Computed example of a mutant assay.
Amino acid sequence: MNHFENTQILVPFDFSEDAQSAVETATGIAEKNDNVTVLHVIDPGQLYGFDDNGGYELGGGLGTVTHESARLAQINEKHQHAALEAMQELFADSAYQGIHLVTTVDVPAEGITKYASTNAIELIVIPSHGQSGFRPSIIGSVAEKVVRLAHCPVLVLRG
């Protein structure tokens, strides 16, 4: 008996090898790929020119982007479309047929947990460390926040 037979599984995806392994794990434990959603969260701070510390980057920050919501929506849509196309290429193999590919613009941990709670996700499968490769502690900061914020169980995969 497969405990995850009809479980809706979310896999946060940042294009890292560890995230790819998390997708493999999720599709392996899911009864069918239709139960797996792969979510790429685009950090708005990076889109709008903020650096990791919340400051402005010189020459590419918000000073060059107007505060018009239509302009920001266009930036969001462009990056979401590009990320979705890249994910579709990565998961074009028939082994991934049926998985759902989704993108959103949000702070990563909050975007993951918001998506999970509003879409009846029952399990989140996340690598302990993502694309940055920076390992400041036993568990990565995004994974740690997801564990604290999620309404559902979180399976954290060691890298």
Score class of each variant (00 low, 15 high):
residue 2 N to M: 10
residue 2 N to I: 10
residue 10 L to M: 08
residue 10 L to Y: 01
residue 10 L to W: 04
residue 11 V to F: 07
residue 11 V to G: 02
residue 13 F to E: 06
residue 13 F to D: 05
residue 14 D to C: 07
residue 15 F to K: 14
residue 16 S to T: 09
residue 19 A to V: 01
residue 22 A to L: 04
residue 25 T to K: 11
residue 26 A to K: 01
residue 31 E to W: 13
residue 31 E to K: 15
residue 32 K to H: 11
residue 33 N to Q: 12
residue 35 N to S: 06
residue 35 N to K: 14
residue 36 V to Q: 02
residue 37 T to S: 07
residue 40 H to A: 12
residue 40 H to I: 15
residue 42 I to V: 11
residue 43 D to C: 03
residue 43 D to I: 12
residue 47 L to Q: 05
residue 48 Y to T: 05
residue 49 G to Q: 05
residue 51 D to L: 07
residue 55 G to T: 15
residue 56 Y to S: 15
residue 58 L to N: 11
residue 59 G to I: 05
residue 61 G to A: 12
residue 64 T to G: 15
residue 67 H to N: 14
residue 67 H to F: 11
residue 69 S to G: 08
residue 75 I to M: 07
residue 76 N to H: 10
residue 77 E to L: 08
residue 78 K to E: 15
residue 78 K to Y: 05
residue 79 H to V: 15
residue 79 H to W: 13
residue 80 Q to K: 15
residue 81 H to W: 03
residue 82 A to Y: 02
residue 83 A to R: 08
residue 86 A to S: 04
residue 88 Q to K: 15
residue 89 E to A: 12
residue 96 Y to L: 09
residue 97 Q to I: 03
residue 97 Q to L: 07
residue 97 Q to D: 12
residue 98 G to T: 06
residue 98 G to F: 06
residue 98 G to P: 09
residue 100 H to D: 01
residue 101 L to W: 03
residue 103 T to A: 04
residue 110 E to S: 13
residue 111 G to P: 08
residue 111 G to E: 01
residue 113 T to C: 00
residue 114 K to N: 09
residue 117 S to Q: 12
residue 118 T to C: 00
residue 119 N to Y: 10
residue 119 N to W: 07
residue 119 N to H: 15
residue 123 L to Q: 02
residue 128 S to L: 04
residue 131 Q to N: 13
residue 132 S to E: 14
residue 133 G to P: 07
residue 135 R to C: 01
residue 141 S to H: 10
residue 141 S to L: 07
residue 142 V to P: 06
residue 143 A to W: 03
residue 144 E to D: 13
residue 146 V to E: 08
residue 150 A to I: 14
residue 150 A to F: 10
residue 152 C to Q: 01
residue 152 C to L: 02
residue 153 P to A: 11
residue 155 L to S: 04
residue 156 V to P: 10
residue 158 R to K: 15
residue 158 R to G: 04
residue 158 R to L: 09
residue 159 G to E: 12
